[in-house]
Nucleic acid binder design. Structure first.
Lengths: 69, 69
DNA sequence: GAATAATGTAATATATATGTTACAATATTT
DNA sequence: AAATATTGTAACATATATATTACATTATTC
């Protein structure tokens, strides 16, 4: 689950630790989200957006992959 | 956690049941999300968006409420 | 290049999103 | 208005998001 958290975080000059603290979450959670290994909760996505001054679409939107499954 | 799932769902003429089936989730989950009683997962939000032809911002964005806590 | 900060990641624990089953309530159709 | 479809909701079970602790790796600073 790719996203643009890292880019946006660096743009506002925050470390994972700092972003995590502002949001009230663990540094590991931020790390794993940036790595695309977490499927975060909407509320957490919104909190991240608020903190890095972006919208959901800007950070978390991904085009539908039409796998034929 | 308010959102516009219901409106969008009705616009594409789907019942909760039908939307749920297309996404591969339970009708109850859709119901509770529409009622704002669930904090859905990003992946689920995206699947809903794909099915009702909207983006994350259109369906799930909510302005930051600055509660002074 | 050593010291420090920042990040990756693993194991285990906990909280919570979602499923299952079931029934009640409301809307829609005949 | 009865019949049917749609939606709300509760109790309990399961899957998974997140926390905790700890250590390893990579980047940054002196």
């Amino acid at each position: 689950m790719e996203n643009k958290v890292r880019i946006a975080r660096i743009q506002v000059n925050l470390t994972q630790q700092q972003l995590a603290e502002k949001i009230g979450v663990t540094r590991q959670t931020i790390s794993l989200i940036e790595k695309g290994k977490y499927n975060p909760t909407l509320k957490l996505c919104l909190d991240i957006c608020y903190t890095v001054n972006k919208t959901l679409d800007e950070i978390f939107w991904v085009e539908k992959e039409n796998d034929e499954k």
